[in-house]
Simulated scan of single mutants.
Amino acid sequence: MLLSCSELSVHYARRKALNRLTLSIKPGEIRALIGPNGSGKSTALQALAGLIVPQEGSAAIDGTPVNTMPRRQLAKKLAFLPQQPTAPDEMTVAQLVRQGRFAHVGLLRSYSQRDEDAIQWALDSTGLSDLANRSLKELSGGERQRAWISAAIAQEAQILLLDEPTSFLDIGYQIEILNLVHQLSRDRGVSIVMAIHDLNQAMSICDQISLLSKGELMFDGAPRALAESGLIEEVFRVKGRFVEIAHDAPPHFDVELAHRNAHHAF
């Protein structure tokens, strides 16, 4: 299942949030969208998910424009987790995750054993089985984020779009989520596109990286090629360098904080 967009442009009033974006995401590929705040990452994800009608161009799955697909049909193929999803505070974790199966069961049909297995797998994969009966208002920010990720993967779509999936998570859960993303890609062939701020996390897990700046695609390619391009310093306006941590590991970016006379990884 191939996700793509061609010459995609999105305008907000007079501001062009995306300018002729063209991407092609292969089955099983993990792709990061990186860039400064306001660069168009979230807009690109929403356009790929069919939530924004572009002024120019289109997004498509296997050649079919996403804006022409019935929502239930699209939900079977693509799951989207926005940056700040909302649900009633009284809803339990299990109820939220069960919503991820709505595209498969419909409104009047009962849940099959396959649906129940998918729900339990999603809870187990995100470490939420013991919290299944907790209401969302009882959860920490990190637990709530994991609940939304659990609902997204319960959908069992072959394309998963994630907007800042590691936000609000401590480092341990960040690693767990990134490992889960890797597992979905490698074991289940899920295509994953995620907007992410942590450059080194993107470099370590992604097959391809797309660098955006002010709605323009500045780079689209492999992590190592990005490391050699010099664009990180230019786009983010930082001084730093890529260093080799291990022979078979991706380059790691250290940024120099001149006012502290120190280095800090991000």
Rank of each mutant, 00 (worst) to 15 (best):
I205C: 04
Y173H: 09
A227V: 06
Q155M: 08
L2H: 14
N200W: 09
M203A: 10
A13G: 10
A227I: 07
A103Q: 10
S9V: 01
G240H: 10
F253C: 07
G35Y: 11
I209N: 03
Y111Q: 14
D220L: 07
K137M: 12
T92K: 12
A258L: 12
Q73R: 13
R114D: 13
A249D: 07
A32D: 01
A157C: 08
F242I: 13
V66H: 00
A262M: 06
F102E: 13
V255R: 14
L199N: 04
G38I: 09
L257I: 14
A75D: 08
A122G: 13
L217M: 08
A195G: 03
G230E: 01
L81M: 15
A258S: 15
T166E: 00
R134I: 11
R224H: 11
L169R: 02
A44W: 01
Q120G: 03
S110V: 03
K77P: 08
S125I: 00
A202N: 06
T126M: 02
A154W: 06
E176Q: 15
L107T: 09
D124I: 11
D117H: 10
A122K: 07
G100E: 03
F80R: 13
K76G: 06
P65L: 01
K26E: 05
V10E: 06
E156F: 09
Q95H: 14
A147K: 06
G215S: 00
S4Q: 15
S204D: 03
L180F: 02
N19V: 02
F168D: 05
L128K: 03
P82W: 12
I175M: 14
I232A: 11
I232G: 10
H264S: 12
V255C: 14
L217P: 01
A258V: 12
G172L: 13
R101D: 11
Q99W: 15
I196N: 00
I153G: 04
A222W: 08
K77V: 10
V93C: 06
L74Y: 07
N179V: 05
Q120P: 04
E164M: 02
E256G: 07
M1N: 13
I196E: 05
I61M: 03
L226K: 09
I209K: 00
T64S: 11
M69D: 12
S204H: 05
S6P: 08
L212E: 09
D89A: 09
R20S: 12
G127P: 07
L161Y: 10
A32Q: 06
D89H: 04
H247Y: 13
Q158P: 07
I175K: 15
Q55K: 12
A152Y: 10
V255T: 12
M203D: 10
D89L: 03
A258G: 14
F253P: 05
G240S: 11
Q174M: 05
S4A: 15
G142W: 03
L226I: 14
Q208K: 14
R15N: 06
R260D: 02
M218F: 03
L21K: 09
I175G: 05
G142D: 01
A249L: 06
N19R: 14
H259C: 01
A132V: 00
R31P: 05
